[in-house]
Each structure stands twice: as C-alpha cells, then as structure tokens.
Computed example of a mutant assay.
Amino acid sequence: MHDLDEAAVFKRLYEPSPRAFFLLFYTTHCSQCKIARARIERVMQNGTFEVDFFTCNLDDAPRVSEHFGIRSVPVCMTYNKKGEQHRVEYALKSEAVYESMVLGVNAQKGDPKSRLLGF
C-alpha cells in the first residue's frame, strides 16, 4: 500500500490510469483505521489483484476530506480502470467486505461469491 499526499490523490482521481485502485482514508490516531489497514493488507496478501492500493492520511489532506465530505474514518473507495467510482464504505468493515470491494474492480474477474465463501 502506498501513502498518497493531497496532490497525489487528486492527480490519481483526475488523470487517466490503466489500473483500478482502492483508497483507504484514515487519520493518525484512529484505532479502527489501523484495524482496517491490517484487514486490507491481509486481503492484498491472500490474492493476486490488478488493483493499486493507496492510503491517504486526512490529517495532512484537509482538501481531500472537504472534496468528499468525509466526516468520519475509516473510509474506503474503489475506482475502476476508467476512473469511475465503484463503491464507498464508511466505518470499519470485515475482511470479506474489503475483498468484495477489490474483486468488484479487479480486471481478472472471478466469481466474488465463491471466493468469499472459500470454495
């Protein structure tokens, strides 16, 4: 996972890219954000995805927070490779939810239900 500053977040959102991406917005002292990050890292380790994973510390990126109207963290967003927002999840979620977010924009499509159920 790569941490993006404010300018890099806007660049990624508005400049074309050939890859889908996953964004985790967090704050420094948020314990649920740390748990979310650990869950997302496990998802990354358990699969091969054609998705870029990014984080952004909202303590250092107030314009990003304003742009999206974020009032609580953690917040996760996925964007497809066309740069269109696919899904947004607020608050701490299960590992399965994060995995389904990634699978929803992953270029290598599989059956997300079978993956989540483990067969």
Rank of each mutant, 00 (worst) to 15 (best):
E15T: 15
E66A: 15
A61H: 06
F54H: 12
L13G: 05
V105G: 11
F53D: 04
H2V: 08
G118R: 14
N106C: 07
L117Q: 13
V75I: 14
Y98R: 00
L4C: 07
V73P: 02
R63T: 14
A38M: 10
R63P: 01
A107L: 14
A61K: 05
A91K: 02
A96F: 05
F25V: 00
L4M: 11
V73E: 04
E15R: 13
A8T: 07
R19H: 07
K113Q: 11
S94L: 12
E84K: 10
L24Q: 10
I40G: 01
P18M: 03
E99C: 11
T55Y: 04
H2N: 13
I40H: 00
S65E: 14
H67Q: 08
L24M: 08
T48S: 12
H2Q: 12
Y98I: 03
P74Q: 12
K34G: 01
D111R: 12
E50D: 15
D52V: 09
D5H: 15
F49N: 01
R37Y: 13
Y14V: 06
Y90I: 01
A96Y: 09
G104D: 10
S17E: 03
S17F: 11
S65Q: 15
K113V: 05
I40W: 06
F22A: 02
A7M: 07
E15D: 14
S65L: 13
G83I: 04
G69P: 11
K109Y: 15
D59A: 10
F119E: 09
M77G: 13
T48P: 01
C56R: 02
Y79H: 05
F10R: 12
R19N: 14
K109C: 02
L103C: 12
A20K: 01
R37F: 08
Q45V: 10
G104P: 02
V73W: 04
A107Y: 09
C56W: 05
F53H: 03
R19I: 13
F53P: 03
A20N: 00
F22S: 00
E84A: 15
T27G: 02
V73L: 04
A8V: 08
C33R: 02
K34C: 00
F25K: 01
M1H: 11
G118D: 08
D60G: 08
Q108V: 15
S94I: 11
H29G: 04
V105P: 02
V97A: 06
I40E: 02
Y79P: 00
Y26I: 00
L117H: 05
R39C: 00
D5C: 09
E99Y: 06
C33Q: 03
V73N: 06
P74A: 11
M44N: 05
M101P: 03
G118N: 08
V73C: 09
I70S: 05
S100R: 15
K34H: 02
I70A: 09
F68K: 08
G118K: 07
T48N: 14
C33F: 03
M77P: 07
N80Y: 08
P74I: 04
E50C: 08
Q32W: 13
N46Y: 07
F22D: 00
Y90A: 07
L117D: 06
D5E: 11
M77I: 14
R12V: 05
I35A: 09
F53K: 12
E41D: 15
